[in-house]
Nucleic acid binder design. Sequence first.
DNA 1: TATGCGTGGCC
DNA 2: TGGCCAAGCAT
Length: 288
Amino acid sequence: MTQPAFGRRVTRWYAGAARDLPWRAADVSPWGVLVSEAMLQQTPVARVRPAWLAWMSRWPSPAALAAAPAGEAVRAWGRLGYPRRALRLHAAATAIVERHGGAVPSSVEDLQALPGVGNYTAAAVAAFAFGASTAVLDTNVRRVYARVFDGVANATGTPTASERTAALERLPAVDAPTYSVAVMELGAVVCVARSPKCTSCPVRSDCRWLASGRPAPEVARRGQSYVGTDRQARGRLLGVLRESVEPVAAAALDVVWHDPAQRARALDGLVADGLVEPLADGRYRLPA
DNA sequence: TATGCGTGGCC
DNA sequence: TGGCCAAGCAT
């Protein structure tokens, strides 16, 4: 299958299958796109949807968020996970006000210079908010390409330079953003990691992976389990602070994590990350 | 480049 | 049941 044929089929499929997501509405601002991309980093769409709506209602512009305490961003982030993203989004809003007059920048270079904005997010905002022809290479796109063109179950590791080059070369000459969101959507709802729905795939007749019998992925090293880790301890501690409007005493943190050494290490880490602020009286709070 | 970083749903 | 997975980033 030629690349243009792949693009046409996926784009046509998207026209009839796209999910109705609030950040895809025609009148959404670049800020709204940026907020959605930050929230969607490793968090499923279903959980982002209500959080994005509440966030945009409260802070409809970078300036609005920048005027709020960073801790309020962390609190509003709720249980989306990876709360450092909330802190970085707040820092990004501040940088947008200071460096760009309050308007989300449109160039990939300026976007990627913002806290919490990496290669993917910069490309996505440039494409979806500003119509740029950037290669949007997220986990969905990588998986679709790996299967259709390489015949393997998954892309592995971090994106390589050759992968980025190939992704750029695959962009159509016209309306690259729609192509990109269409490939992402295919990966998100059809060409999913487990139990892909190949019978409803628009490119099933030309997928190398399907043609070779959907070979299983290579066994990857499994990461650390979650229970008992510093990560879980951090989550517990921050959860206490998130739920309390007032600063909390150390004793209130002691009760949510039994191991004192690990608790102290986790708390130190949160303070070092700027997610928690120790007060002179020994209490703790979200950052002002 | 490998690792640490939250949270919850799924099979 | 518990490992896998979800529109990554920073170091």
